[in-house]
Amino acid sequence: MIWVETIINGVLYGGLYGLLGVGLALIVGVMRVVNLSHGEFIVLSAFIGVSLIGVVPWLHPLALLLPVAAIAFVLGFGLQAVLINRVVTRPDPFAAILLTFGVAVVVRNLMVEVYGADPRHLQAGQLAQASAGIGGLHIGVLPLLILALSVALFTALQLLLTRTRFGRIVRATADHRDVVRLMGVNPGRVYNLVMGLSLALASVAGMLLAIRASFTPYSGVERLLIAFEVVVLGGLGTFWGAMLGGITLGVAELVGLRLDPNAGPLYAHLLFLVGVLLRPSGLFRVRA
């Protein structure tokens, strides 16, 4: 019974991991750039949440998801417009990687200086302890809510990209950056919006993760690696691949922790390395 519970919890946790990765998958798919500061912005949004709670302590953290996502959207838009668009068209594929790595170093250490290195946590009150008993299993209400929110966001993103005019422009830009210019699309502005969207999704994941586990300014590295593993494992062609990748990693991590309580994310990382070894051909096909 304990194993069924562990696996169900892994699936619920994995939905959150999928959400961590889907923003990165969007960036990789649309502009072929891996944003190495993705993890730092996930942590930064949690810190923004902590700051906002300090201003309005009576508000529930879940009510802050929207304002934090809006701030993250603006940050992403600005990051892309001011910095990344200057290097994204260079033939050298490393310029953008190294630039975002520089951004990660700056953001991480700014968070250390501003917020200190102590572990933080977002309090969700009674909701965090509430659990529902289904057929003898105890499943947390909050993890269920988080998974439902992840699925809703995935569906919304899928619809946005496949059913709207904006989605069509994004997909066209991803396929032929130079051709869409002839149709009157400015790829730079599309990139700005996509990066904003990516970090907004990341910020929701960052807030939810901060409710479930404590974080420090140095947590960004771990978040980035998980997000990246989600992208690579789930590189099946759709965002649902990212969701599946996240769930696989979530189950691997929780089962690993059950077997070996101080393993941390070791088993998720090992699963990723094995995945790379077995399915290298599927790893490069990441499309929006």
Binding site: V28, V34, L36, F94, L225, L273, V276, P280, L283, F284
Partner: peptide, 13 residues
């Protein structure tokens, strides 16, 4: 088997 950014983060993992 990994290229560019994938290699970068693969080695990191």
């Amino acid at each position: 088997r990994l290229r560019e950014a994938y290699f970068a983060i693969g080695t990191w993992v």
